[in-house]
């Protein structure tokens, strides 16, 4: 086994175990175990588990973005300092100063690449499990936590007559209707790329602060908005239908999460934040309190505590008082 395979082995086991857990649960409540839809729901269950596990990271990032409002004055000052300096070195100096500022305030709008990196081994593992199903069946083996009987069952299961392990490029096992596989694959690829495109477009149109819009990264980002769907569309012809289900579901989750964020907790300084402020003003509600930063009451409490300390009355000996 190569290094890549060795690293992926535990992930393959985990991915197949979670899927199997959902499959057993769904069979228990009365769904037919050999049916493709039961396995489809198991894949969706896997997505829900992974994405739900990442919610704390996401919430932390949102809170950090809200905390950014607190350091707006400092950021403005810094931008004034670097105004008109467009050379690369000055930009780098500004980036460095900005990071130091975030650190000083204990907030950071960037979530680090961890959330993306975490999903990658799971995705590769699922890819290997699903595309290895037919091979494992022929070799009389199991995959990960799946026994050989379950592998056979999975390999024979299908939705709309298309096996979950079939892909547009490689087709399915002998006897499958290639037209159905092609049509379903193309529909899924379109759904996958469309959901990704819409999410990205929404973020760029509504949930970016003016500073981010003006940054030099913006042009690259805009280009990627159109390049990425093409990359995934082309890559998709190699994806088994099960992987396409996984990817589409996770994109839909991202989309829902993003709609929620744009509506309820937008990035400060973005058009969505303005819209939220207007909606709240129309309802006569106060503007949203800040999250992530130190609350005013806490500071007031601390000040009061200090004052109490200084007001402590000096103890005096009784005989001194008599004088």
């Amino acid at each position: 086994m190569d290094i890549f395979g060795t690293i992926l082995a535990p992930f393959k086991w985990l991915v197949s175990a979670i899927m199997l857990g959902f499959h057993d649960g769904l069979s228990f409540i009365g769904l037919p175990p050999e049916n493709g839809w039961t396995w489809t729901l198991s894949i969706i269950g896997l997505v829900l588990v992974i994405r739900a596990a990442l919610i704390p990271v996401f919430v932390k990032q949102i809170k950090a973005q809200r905390g950014m409002q607190l350091l707006q004055p400092d950021l403005k000052k810094m931008q004034q300092k670097y105004k008109g300096k467009t050379d690369q070195l000055s930009r780098q100096a500004m980036a460095q100063e900005q990071m130091a500022l975030y650190k000083k305030h204990g907030t950071n709008p960037f979530s680090a690449c961890l959330p993306m990196l975490i999903q990658m081994p799971f995705f590769f593992a699922l890819f290997q499990v699903l595309s290895g199903i037919t091979q494992a069946r022929q070799a009389g083996q199991g995959i990960g936590a799946l026994s050989h009987e379950q592998v056979v069952q999975f390999d024979e299961s299908s939705i709309f007559g298309a096996p979950l392990s079939a892909s547009l490029l490689h087709g399915g096992p002998a006897g499958t209707d290639q037209v159905v596989v092609s049509v379903l694959s193309i529909v899924m690829i379109l759904a996958m790329t469309a959901s990704q495109f819409i999410t990205q477009k929404q973020i760029m149109a509504k949930n970016m602060s003016e500073e981010a819009m003006a940054s030099p990264f913006m042009r690259q980002q805009k280009m990627m908005l159109y390049v990425l769907p093409v990359v995934f569309g082309v890559g998709g012809i190699n994806f088994p239908i099960g992987v396409l289900i996984y990817w589409t579901t996770t994109n839909l989750w991202t989309m829902g999460q993003q709609f929620f964020v744009i509506r309820r907790m937008p990035t400060p300084g973005s058009p969505a934040a303005k819209a939220l402020a207007e909606r709240r003003a129309a309802k006569g509600l106060p503007s949203l309190p800040l999250l992530g930063g130190k609350k005013d009451e806490d500071v007031a409490g601390e000040v009061a505590a200090i004052e109490l300390k200084t007001q402590r009355i000096q103890p005096q000996r009784k005989n001194r008082k008599k004088k």
Partner: peptide, 14 residues
């Protein structure tokens, strides 16, 4: 890198 935009919490980025 350009696919992700800026995600790193550090300067310089990873």
């Amino acid at each position: 890198s350009p696919l992700y935009g800026q995600v790193c919490r550090f300067f310089p980025s990873c």
